[in-house]
Design a protein around this nucleic acid. Structure first.
Ligand SMILES: [Zn+2]
Ligand SMILES: [Zn+2]
Length: 497
DNA sequence: GAGAACGTCTCA
DNA sequence: TGAGACGTTCTC
């Protein structure tokens, strides 16, 4: 497959674009030799090879001398780039590329717009900050780096013409080792029994190692040592302050306490998330993970099946889909914080709520949203079940609606008549993914009548039958923050009826 | 544009 | 699994 042929990789041309029901303008492509810049995406010779790398038997990362894969990489991920159900870091939703986190921007404030979204398939920044380099650089500090002269006798020196390698005695120590120990672990655990760790079970699950860190790509950046692989692709400012954290820094953390006004998420997918024009992407399975308190954090160990990262529903035990709904099991309080504020800036009672409004439970395809889990996508139980479950049973917080849209009376949470029996039994029900894309959120928060939801396989534009309402009076907390989307939805986001 | 050398691929 | 070849990136 050619990236050029894949719209997910193709660089969007300048001009108006429509993603879902949103419209925005893309300026001409940024300058070259930036990550994700068109020349890299389109012209890199690795474009033809990374798929092979991701899917083939090779594992250069695990090899002895290979460096990290830093090329922008993605592949035909049938279950998403992190494989079925693996915790996905999610995109740096709405991060202002080129803007420091939390920096106010946007037309409403009369402040400059950030660069438009130019994210790769993973939602990773396209390198608009220009700090990305594809090749690591010698540290210049280690002993070999201090050496100025080639020995002239080593293999690399002798074979310089063909080998194109630096003198073996001058080879930087940092460049000799792989960028991340996870690569080594990855190598270690996955071949002994023929099964790779969850993070390497598919090569395609390997997170993109495209962001420079303290391994030579970006001087001064934190090292990714000890970091779960699914976070290693995150931009530095999204890195958690603790390696045990399983996701990027929640936006509310970045923006400080309080979050954005009206409970709007401080960041939202600038263009509907990674789903993009090709339909919801693998990141649309759910919002970024939530974060246990430091006391519950543990250093990531992919070899440990007990690490929360491998628990489908977090460290508090089986989720609502578990065969045993043990009511006696602990029901810890929301571990994300003790301030009553969720990472999204909403109050706690709004957290851990299904993103589907109770009104929507009569929509079969909305009643069984997916949640990722190690075993694959897993449907949620019906709303009536979810609402009666302990918060901790939910695999992920869903800082979505807990109240009906303005003007709509709440319905009882239990609507057995509208719920298929199979689902009431906790069965698989209808396995329709629900996305957290802005479109889906907006749709679910405003729809008074059933409307087809975008699915993971849908390719056409999403057509919600309602308008995006950013009014603080709307009662919706599901809209994209204009500030964070980078685009004033009143100005550039147009409703597609 | 040339040279250096990093990263990836192929093969034994 | 390591060595070698080579494409590509990066610096000057
Ligand atoms: Zn030498
Ligand atoms: Zn060095």
């Amino acid at each position: 497959m050619s990236c050029l042929a894949d719209p997910r990789f193709a660089s969007p041309p300048p001009g108006p674009h429509r993603l879902g029901h949103m419209e925005f303008q893309l300026p001409p492509p940024p300058a070259s030799h930036m990550l994700g810049s068109p020349d890299i995406i389109a012209n890199s010779s690795h474009d033809s090879s990374f798929l092979q790398t991701l899917s083939g038997p090779h594992d250069e990362l695990a090899g002895g001398h290979g460096g990290p894969q830093m090329m922008s990489g993605a592949g035909p991920f049938p279950h998403g780039p992190f494989g079925p159900g693996m915790p996905h870091p999610g995109p740096p939703f709405g991060h202002r590329l080129g803007f420091p986190p939390g920096m106010p921007c946007g037309p409403r404030l009369g402040l400059p717009l950030p660069p438009p979204p130019f994210l790769d398939f993973y939602g990773m920044p396209g390198g608009l900050d220009g700090n990305y380099r594809k090749k690591r650089k010698a540290c210049g500090k280690c002993v070999p780096c201090q050496r100025k002269d080639n020995c002239g006798t080593c293999l690399n020196c002798v074979n310089r013409a063909k080998g194109k390698q630096i003198c073996i005695h001058r080879k930087c120590d940092a460049l000799k080792k792989k960028a991340s120990k996870f690569d080594k672990d990855d190598d270690k655990d996955d071949r002994s029994n023929g099964h790779k760790s969850p993070f390497s079970e598919r090569d395609g699950m390997r997170p993109p190692q495209m962001m420079p860190f303290g391994d030579g790509l970006m001087p001064g950046m934190p090292d990714r040592e000890g970091m779960p692989p699914h976070m290693m692709g995150l931009p530095p400012h999204m890195m958690p302050p603790h390696p045990g954290m399983l996701g990027p820094i929640p936006p509310a953390w970045e923006n400080g306490p309080g979050g954005p006004p009206h409970g709007l998420p401080p960041h939202g997918p600038p263009h509907g998330g990674p789903g993009g024009p090709g339909g919801p992407g693998p990141l649309d399975h759910g919002p970024p993970s939530f974060y246990p308190p430091p006391s519950e954090m543990m250093p990531f160990d992919e070899n440990s099946p007990h690490h929360p990262a491998f628990m489908p529903n977090g460290p508090h035990g089986p989720g609502p889909l578990s065969s045993s709904h043990d009511s006696s099991s602990p029901q810890p309080q929301n571990p994300s914080n003790n301030s009553g504020l969720t990472p999204m800036g909403n109050h706690e009672d709004q957290q851990n709520q299904p993103m589907i409004h109770p009104h929507m439970t009569h929509l079969p395809h909305l009643s069984a949203p997916f949640f990722p889990g190690p075993g694959g996508d897993m449907p949620l139980p019906p709303i009536s079940m979810v609402s009666s479950l302990p918060h901790s049973s939910l695999p992920l917080p869903l800082p979505m609606m807990s109240h009906p849209p303005m003007g709509m009376a709440p319905l009882p949470t239990s609507q057995p008549d509208s719920i298929p029996q199979s689902m009431q039994n906790g069965g698989p029900g209808l396995l329709k993914p629900i996305t957290t894309s802005s479109t889906a959120i907006t749709t679910s928060s405003h729809l008074p009548v059933p409307t087809p939801m975008p699915t993971a396989t849908s390719t056409g534009p999403v057509k919600p039958n309602t308008s995006l309402n950013n009014s603080p009076e709307s009662g919706s907390r599901c809209s994209i923050s204009p500030r964070d989307s980078g685009y004033d939805s009143n100005e550039v986001v147009k409703t597609e009826l």
